[in-house]
Each structure stands twice: as structure tokens, then as C-alpha cells.
Amino acid sequence: MTTVGIATGAGRGTGEACARRLADMVDVLLLADRNEAAAAAVAKDLAGHGKRAVAEPFAVDVTDREGLARLAGRVAELGTLRAVAHAASVSPEEADWRRILEADFVATAVLAEVLRPLATAGTAFVYFASVSPLIAHIDPDAAVAAVLDDPLQEDFLDRIRDAIGPAVEDPAWAYPWATYGVHRFVRAEAVRLGPVGARACSLSPGAVDAPETRREVAQHESVRQLIQRTPLGRTGRCEEFAAVAAFLVSDEASFVTGVDIVVDGGLCAAVQDG
């Protein structure tokens, strides 16, 4: 049996770090990224380091539903789906509110939908989210929650804008709503996958040691203050988030599903403690 893994956003950052961990856990690893050259460079580097997996770059934008269907088709051609680390995302600094909700939430639901038929006993998914909804205290009323629980509706973006209101058009507010949607989605997905013995979790990183974070720190005092409040006193490395993701898809986490794992250096603890 050939086992297959997927790492999205695998061309750089946390997605690349996840790919490097998964490359020792499966036989074939699909490096999904919209930047095919970056994914190919990671695949070449993995091949030169004696990893177990044969790494194959796969060009896809996670907001392209047909592209994600092709990704699922490629998995089916190769073997049995074993592990998925979905780290592809956009930040509030990179896109408008629609793109953020589509890339960071709707794409998660679409990816899950196309891969669900391939899930079997032992298949594990980890979907990256964020601590931002925990910091922002996102707590929707029943009407908003009902819209969030149906992200595959064709008019979802218009419906969620009407439900939340014009404030969601601010990318800095759209992002916590999008990642909160991932938290909710994973709980429901774990229930759907349970009968076949498959699992799904979300992982919520705190501030990442990356150029985007450094730009946010330089531009926004509130971001700088949040990092200063982190008990460990620093941002997190991509490899640290990837290590937790690798655990969540491993057999050692075989009874862990339907939960969000916070990896934030203690930031949420500090904020909740006042």
C-alpha cells in the first residue's frame, strides 16, 4: 500500500516546514502550492536529503475548486491518503476581505470535501487556523453561526457579509472570522470522518517568525504589544508549528480529533489572564 501525504502552501514558510516533517511519514508527498517553482525547489531539496517520501510538486491555488479536485484525483491515482497538512493561507496584509475568507476558510471546506471520499482508517487532517479569533473573542449569534456552518454555499461571501455587517470588510477583522470558521468546521468534520476511522484537527499558531509578521510589528503598535505579552517573549518558528502538525497526523495522536490546538507561546493564556 502506497501512502500519500499532502502539504499545502509547501513552497515556503510553515507549509514548507510541514512538508519536511511529512516527508518522513508517507511514501509519496504532494507539495501543493500556487508557486510551482517554489514547490519544485522544495521537492528537489527533499530528494537530496534522503527522505522517505517521493516529493511531487503540484501547482494549485487553494481557492480554485477545479484545481483541488485535480489534487484529489492525483491522490487517488497514487495510493491511500494518509496525512494532510493544510497550511496555505493569506494574511490581512496581503488581501482584501473576500480573498481572506475565501482562501483561509472556504478553501478549507472545499479541500475537505474533495478529499473526504479518500479518507480511511488512519487518515488524518490538520487545518491551520489562528489564535486571532481567540484574542478577538469571536462569539457569533445563532444567525451568524448558521451562515458560517455552510461555507460551500455559492453566495457564502455575500451572506456572511450581510450577517456580520460591514465591519467584516476590514481585512484585519475578516481574518479572525475566517479562522474562527475553520475552528467550527473542524469540529463538524471530525464527526463526519469518525465512522471511517479518520481524524481532523485545527492548529492555531500565534505570531510567526516571518517577514509578514515583522512588517506588521513595524506598522501596528497593537501587534508589537501582543508579541511583547507572549510569555515566551518571542514569535514562533515555522518548524515549531510543523512539529505539532506532524504529531497531530501521526499514529501517536490516534485518539485526538475535533479539537483546536493552540501553539502560541502562551499568548492566549496571558490575554485571558488580563
Rank of each mutant, 00 (worst) to 15 (best):
A198H: 10
S222H: 10
V256P: 08
G233K: 00
Q228H: 12
V249F: 05
E216A: 13
R214G: 01
A207M: 07
V244A: 07
R199W: 12
Q228W: 07
I227E: 04
A218F: 10
A253F: 13
L232N: 08
V223P: 02
Q225T: 05
V244R: 07
F241T: 03
S222K: 13
H220F: 05
G206Q: 05
G197I: 06
L248N: 02
A242P: 00
E239W: 00
F255Y: 15
A243Y: 00
E240G: 11
V208G: 09
E221K: 11
A245L: 04
L226S: 02
E240A: 05
V249S: 00
R215H: 01
G197A: 14
P231H: 07
R234M: 06
S204I: 08
A200H: 04
A246Q: 02
E252S: 14
R214W: 12
P205E: 02
E239S: 12
E240H: 07
S250N: 14
V208L: 13
R199D: 13
Q219T: 04
V223E: 08
S204T: 01
V191T: 12
P231E: 06
E216G: 11
G197H: 14
A246P: 02
V223R: 09
P211F: 04
G206F: 01
R215W: 02
V196T: 15
S204G: 10
L203M: 11
T235C: 13
A242E: 07
L226V: 04
R234K: 12
S222G: 09
R215L: 11
C201Q: 13
S250K: 09
H220E: 08
I227G: 02
S250L: 13
V208N: 11
E252D: 14
R199F: 10
A210F: 08
V208D: 10
H220P: 01
V196G: 14
Q219A: 14
D209S: 12
P205V: 00
D251C: 04
Q219N: 13
A242S: 11
P211W: 11
T213E: 03
C201T: 12
R199V: 12
G233E: 02
A200L: 10
S202W: 04
E221N: 08
F247W: 12
E212N: 14
L203I: 14
P195N: 10
E240D: 05
